[in-house]
Nucleic acid binder design. Structure first.
Lengths: 358, 358
DNA sequence: CCTCCGCCGGAAAACCTTTTCCTCAGAAAA
DNA sequence: TTTTCTGAGGAAAAGGTTTTCCGGCGGAGG
């Protein structure tokens, strides 16, 4: 029904459309030179009121709008920024994308998006391809190997990373302070009296894992044991890992993200495990849903739209000095949001206050 | 800190980047003519093995990638498709966008996205602007007035609508059969024994409302009363409208969408209203969350990615016949998904739930 | 009154790729 | 051997816009 034939056709035969008015048509209509039309439209050089009047009238009459390809060809810039995300369906990335888009629009930039569908290898190619079309690329690729990223950073003129640092801070990036976030969660759980915690870790190669693990190690001790449970980054992963988390007999579960916690919550409900009655649960990111869920999720808040906006600003700023001192890393500090999904452990007879037993 | 000065600079000064290799550089490097390079790369005409070899080597050595602006200028096509959405943060539109993006990628098309931020008037301008850059535009604008849409359809070469029909079916569109969906929900509720239903209606000018209201009228009768409650399309709207829905003393609430139902559920929980114990609740769309929520939401399933994919296909097919018989409307039939948020009304056996006497 | 300066507007180049047109060489047919 | 045909590759134009370079005109100063 949806024949490929039709699709092939549009790919090759693009001339079927009625031709659009060009600057030359406008010039003829207004009885001036193309140069004058351009000057009126761009405001490059002053033009007499009389001519300007005529040009504007002609533009309106013909409905003329400049051809961006021609402009781009000449200027060497496309006025577009690319965004690579693993999955637009993930509310986290959707918000980041929104942040970039809104910021870009304010400067009259278009946004190009590539969804790599969580396929690891595709990100490199997507970014490279996007860089042909855009003046810069915002890359959300938590799992790209450092080597690959380094190579990419050299091939793509204005590359900005989100939630990862490349080449030791050489490539501009906006990152969340995952270590501080995890530390805050650990502190919160410890104060509630939890002693045995399961951590549902993200994808094996996720960049943020290093910082998270640092925080976990720092928080660990004889009275605060962290059990690692392999999981992933989607709510489906969370759902699958929920059983393993339970098997650790931990009194609290830290999920890689809110999105993951969503799946955990669903599975716990199926199993008749009550949150926070039987076990506490925390997320990460504070996506919009977390406040809508029951129980409302304890998490750390990250402003995802800001992440996108700042990534854009970093891109915009990277025009400076010919990209000379391009290394610039911005860090966002997440904030603990205490809601209903965490409570003192039921097992503890007395929720002993923050007594560290050395 | 994020000075505008920096942003202005990137906008004007785009030449700071090292110049990229052109086809002429490659030609010189391979000691052939630019035409030959082009032929090797596009496969337009056969080239001797020897030359092809030389050209490919030169391309690799120089890291040459053709300038899309120049290609676009010549071909009159940009190999990009625009998507206008009211809010990428809304999982519904995020999924539609994903559908378009994935389908477009398969045909080697880029996707441009504009987020109009639910600001009504912005959609027209966004679509118009996008059409300068893209070969076609997929428009998700449920609330654009028909007149405005008609005008837009003439200005934008390949316009495809999602979830609305324009100019009496003249503009290609992918729509959900809202009437069938609402009818299915009504049937389900009636079979459960509900007689008094609150409908949380969408934005005043939403296109789908007509079809929904048709279904509602058809289902209405002495033993099936539908009370209209103004609401909106976001979960925040749902949250706000929840109280009014309760005030109708209905035994079941039909939300405009799952996204709205999310907010309703949160508010009901705050009020101590149990679903489906005290009142049944239905959604629309079956977003991924609906199955993760507790109670799992009864809804009608719409494949949002398919919506996007089919919109793309409609765009691709519209290259036919110079857009002659361009009017083509595809309808997706939604499917009732019965989950936990609906049950027979409690009023049948017990006097009344604890609904506040507002 | 003449000359010089400044400003406005037009002509043309440049941006990079594709494609048409043409040439030239080699092979096949007579 | 000569003529014709085929096929490969080069030269050049086209595509729409911006910008540089100039020419011409008017005003001001000498």
């Amino acid at each position: 029904m949806w024949s490929n034939a039709a699709m092939d056709r549009v790919r090759t035969d693009a001339g079927a459309r009625p031709p659009r008015a060009t600057i030359i048509d406008v010039a003829r209509e207004a009885a001036v030179s193309p140069a004058t039309v351009s000057r009126v439209l761009t405001g490059t050089k002053p033009v007499s009121a009389d001519l300007e009047q005529r040009v504007r009238a002609a533009v309106n009459r013909l409905g003329y709008r400049p051809n961006p390809a021609a402009q781009g060809l000449l200027r060497g810039a496309t006025h577009a920024v690319g965004v690579v995300v693993p999955d637009v369906g993930n509310p986290y990335f959707a918000e980041v994308l929104k942040g970039v888009t809104n910021a870009a629009e304010e400067s009259d930039f278009r946004t190009l998006v590539a969804d790599t569908g969580e396929k690891g290898g595709a990100e490199h190619d997507a970014a490279l391809e996007l860089s042909r079309w855009a003046d810069g690329v915002v890359l959300c690729s938590p799992r790209m190997p450092q080597r690959e990223l380094a190579k990419l950073a050299q091939a793509v003129p204005h590359l900005v990373c989100v939630n990862r640092v490349g080449r030791g801070g050489q490539v501009p990036a906006v990152v969340v302070d995952f270590e501080a976030g995890m530390a805050a969660i650990c502190r919160h759980l410890r104060e509630l009296g939890h002693r045995r915690i399961a951590y549902l870790r993200g994808p094996a190669r996720a960049w943020s894992e290093r910082a998270r693990q640092r925080a976990l190690r720092a928080a660990s001790g004889p009275d605060f044991e962290v059990l690692q449970v392999p999981c992933g980054s989607s709510s489906a992963d969370g759902r699958r890992a929920a059983d393993a988390a339970l098997a650790t007999r931990a009194t609290a579960v830290m999920a890689f993200s809110d999105y993951v916690a969503l799946g955990v919550l669903a599975r716990f409900d199926e199993l008749g495990v009550s949150v926070p009655g039987d076990v506490s649960l925390t997320g990460f990111d504070d996506i919009a849903l977390s406040e809508l869920l029951r129980p409302r999720l304890t998490t750390v808040k990250v402003s995802k739209q800001d992440l996108g906006r700042r990534a854009w600003e970093l891109f915009a700023a990277s025009g400076d000095v010919g990209g000379g001192e391009s290394g610039r890393v911005v860090t966002a500090i997440p904030e603990l949001i205490t809601r209903d999904s965490t409570a003192p452990p039921a097992t503890a007879t007395t929720p002993l206050p923050k007594t560290a037993k050395a």
